[in-house]
Amino acid sequence: MMNFINLILSGLATGAIYALVAIGFTLLWQTSQTINFAQGEFVMVPAFFVLATLNLGMPLPIALLVGLALSMLVLGVLFKNLLVDPMLRHGVLPLAICTMALSIFLKETVKEVYSAEASPFPSFLPEGNLIFFGANISIQSVSIFVFAICAVLALQAFLARTSTGRQMQATAQNPYVAKLLGVPVERMIMYTFLINAALVALASFLISPVYLAKFSAGETLGLAAFIAAIVGGFNQIRGAIVGGLLLGIVDNLAAAYISTQYRGAVPLFLLIAVILFRPQGLMGRAEERTV
């Protein structure tokens, strides 16, 4: 039983990260039909912004803020203006392929400019363990979980309660109608990219102490978030959360009780089952817009 709780708890912590990254994925898809294959690299990069700032002798809180700002500039504004905008009209695939090239570009650039080594990353969370139902759980995992959930709740509140948030939702649901209703669609799309950049930066700061800052750290994460987004329905924020948490837990249970050699495939079979029997995803609604 203790083992089981252990697996669930650590799965939840990992899943919360998947969820954070998957939400951004979902948001970009909703508002701009962007499938971002570089999303994993987007989580890897902010850690290096922070490390570079730390190397200049700045204290950690400042470095984190600088990292967040740079992420929003590079992974938000520049990404949208330079890459997404010119390609948006030409359908989903060319843009998706372009983000694939972007992921190679980001990985190789970090490797060449910074290092191929994994660099330790300072944690702003407390170390140590808590006892929970007889299982030892690290405060770091709990904090990651709490942070991720808070970020998600804040985002939900923002989208539901504020006027900007509602305009963003309108944009996501139907940009044409939103435009007719006087919503500044362009600006709303930009906000989505900024929110995505902030989410990946947060994910980066939370996990880099554990995953370490390394050029290849985004590979598994990007794929996991992608899967989480699909399992959750791809067009629903709460779907992405459920998908992420579920994937984290299933990952652990599959490795512990089914097969360690096939741990990469079991969650995917879950995914196939979901898609075959519920093509609109676990929490998703049927997509009304044609792609």
């Binding site: 330079l82 010119p86 390609m87 090239a101 190679i104 570009f105 190789e108 060449e112």
Partner: peptide, 22 residues
């Protein structure tokens, strides 16, 4: 040398932006 994949990725991105239909 070490930059070849960076240049390659950049080239592919620019190519796709300029010619999204291939």
């Amino acid at each position: 040398h070490g930059w070849y994949l960076i240049i390659y990725a950049l080239f592919v991105m620019i190519l796709l932006i300029k010619t999204p239909t291939g």
